[in-house]
């Protein structure tokens, strides 16, 4: 592009053309898929190991999710920023939304560990409920911001599973591994993996 004077009509055409060139939307499918598969693979591993050995020590495997997920997300964000070169307003809002959720999740995990180590009180159910409800809420918000229905519907199903979990915990219904784990895994597939693949296809089409 040369540095030249334009007619009024050319100016307007140039503005429209530049706006069209920046229209490519980033939908964050890679991160969604990473978290979705990470949670599902961990959940299946815990389910199989606990069911086959009847040893609850395998529940410590849940910590693989934040230990792998958060550093991987951070690396993906840096590489994505370098690769894309531009950040839109909706990118910033959704990124901050998930950052707030991520930080609050870490704080909650530390709190629960503190309760367990200092007071021998097991409140691990809080991590489960919080992660499902907050993930679903953040996903619905992202869906509304980027106008993607698959995120909204996925988030609503996640919310329903979160509500069932809350009712079970409050009503003292044991979250038995044989019925709760398949439900939990299904919820993450519907909430993160399916919308992740839909968005990934849309990003490829762009």
């Amino acid at each position: 592009m040369e540095e030249k004077q334009l007619t009024e009509k050319e100016s307007l055409e140039l503005i429209a053309s530049m706006i069209a060139r920046t229209k490519t939307r980033y939908l964050g499918s890679r991160k969604m898929l990473m978290w979705g598969y990470l949670v599902v693979i961990t959940a299946i591993s815990v389910w199989v190991l606990v069911a086959s050995t009847h040893n609850l020590v395998w529940n410590w495997l849940w910590f693989a999710i934040p230990l792998i997920g958060f550093p991987t997300t951070s690396m993906m964000s840096h590489s994505q920023q370098r690769h894309r070169g531009a950040t839109s307003y909706s990118d910033k809002v959704t990124s901050r939304l998930w950052t707030i959720f991520g930080i609050s999740e870490i704080v909650l995990i530390i709190m629960c560990l503190g309760f367990y180590l200092l007071g021998e009180t097991d409140c691990s159910g809080a991590i489960l409920v919080y992660s499902i409800l907050m993930t679903s809420g953040a996903e619905i918000a992202q869906g509304l911001i980027v106008r993607e229905n698959c995120l909204i519907y996925g988030g609503i199903i996640g919310l329903l599973v979160g509500m069932i979990t809350v009712c079970c915990i409050v009503g003292d219904i044991p979250l038995n591994v044989n019925w709760y784990m398949p439900l939990f895994i299904l919820a993450w597939i519907v909430t993160m993996i399916i919308p992740g693949h839909i968005l990934s296809n849309k990003e490829k089409q762009q």
Binding site: E2, Q5, R21
Partner: peptide, 14 residues
């Protein structure tokens, strides 16, 4: 041309 193009892009992204 170029300055207007730059501004048009920056108006559309953060």
């Amino acid at each position: 041309q170029l300055r207007l193009a730059i501004m048009s892009i920056l108006m559309n992204v953060e």
